[in-house]
Write a protein that binds this DNA or RNA. Sequence first.
DNA 1: CAGTGGATGCTCT
DNA 2: GAGCATCCACTGT
Length: 174
Amino acid sequence: MHDVAPDLLGCPLLVDGVGGPIVEVEAYDADDPASHGFRGPTARNRAMFGPPGHAYVYRSYGVHWCLNLVCSETGRPEAVLVRALKPEFRLDRMRERRGGVPDRQLCAGPGRLCEALGITGEDDGRPLDRPPFEILAAEEAVEITTGPRVGITRAADRPWRYAVVRSRYLSRRL
DNA sequence: CAGTGGATGCTCT
DNA sequence: GAGCATCCACTGT
């Protein structure tokens, strides 16, 4: 799964044609105390234990939605949290949904990204290779760096945040 | 700029 | 009843 996470960077993620290339992700694996799947399957996290190539969407802080791409090859809960992408396709829809924030903040953060792409709990468990989802091959090679994950308390020092070097669309500086 | 705190609802202990 | 894989508004320099 730590192989999958960096490979996703640069790949355009679209929902109903709205989106752009992913610039920032975080990896969560089965032996990770910070992962929702760490304590076993529950009603919320069941998608994490399902087949790979599906979405795991959950509500964060009672307010925002966050999107994971499930990539458990072995039936273990492994997923990649999509934290930011470069707004590129159908910017008009994103601006409309995000209420006039600067373009660089349209998808700079997991909650913001879901709002811009219209992702909700309805999308939990849906396959990523069928509408409304679409993930394309990377347009060009990107330079990748790593750093500590954001917003967690347990295992916060694991450097499992992957980002495109010098992208101006990241949720935070590395 | 940096730092702080509130909103808000659901999950798990 | 506690604790969030967050965001935004507001404060003070």
